[in-house]
Deep mutational scan, measured.
Amino acid sequence: DLSGKLIIKAQLGEDIRRIPIHNEDITYDELVLMMQRVFRGKLLSNDEVTIKYKDEDGDLITIFDSSDLSFAIQCSRILKLTLFVNG
């Protein structure tokens, strides 16, 4: 049953990962930690990372904090994230 699940599709460069999320109350910090685990070796804990999501118009919107993240989650059951490393 995928109805209650949130799917995160995260892209870093050419690498795209699909991550099912069971807890929608994820904070921004938890998201960043999850991305560091998912992209281990490509995304380091001291990297400056910018996370953006695609909205319904196809625009890339920056996620700065947990309220941005929860808004993005409300918009779509499949959250398409693009990561930019400013390392």
Score class of each variant (00 low, 15 high):
K80Y: 08
F84C: 09
D65E: 03
K80C: 15
S66N: 10
R77H: 07
D59I: 11
K80V: 15
D25T: 11
L79G: 07
R40V: 09
L79I: 08
V32W: 06
P20S: 12
I63D: 00
K80W: 10
D47G: 14
S3V: 07
R40Q: 13
Q11M: 07
N23G: 14
G41C: 04
A72R: 10
G4F: 12
A10I: 06
I73W: 08
R37M: 08
L79S: 10
G13T: 00
N23K: 12
K54A: 15
D57V: 12
M34E: 12
L83F: 03
K5N: 13
V32H: 09
N46K: 08
K5L: 05
G58T: 02
S45T: 06
G41R: 05
L83R: 02
G4I: 12
T62L: 01
N23P: 08
D15E: 15
Q36T: 11
R17F: 08
N86C: 08
L33E: 14
G4E: 13
A72M: 03
S3A: 07
S3N: 11
I73Q: 03
I51M: 11
D25Q: 08
D57S: 15
I16C: 15
S66H: 05
Y28K: 06
L79M: 04
R18M: 11
L2W: 05
G87R: 10
I78C: 09
Q74E: 08
R77I: 03
D29I: 04
V49I: 05
V32N: 05
I26Y: 02
Y28E: 00
R17E: 14
G4Y: 12
D1A: 03
I8T: 01
V38N: 13
S67H: 13
A72T: 02
A72Q: 05
T62S: 10
L31G: 00
I19L: 09
F84Y: 06
N86F: 03
R37C: 08
V38P: 02
I63M: 10
G58R: 03
L12S: 01
S76E: 06
S70W: 07
S67V: 13
G4L: 07
F84E: 14
K54M: 13
S67M: 07
L2F: 14
L43P: 02
N86A: 12
K52I: 04
I8S: 01
R18N: 15
V49A: 04
F64R: 15
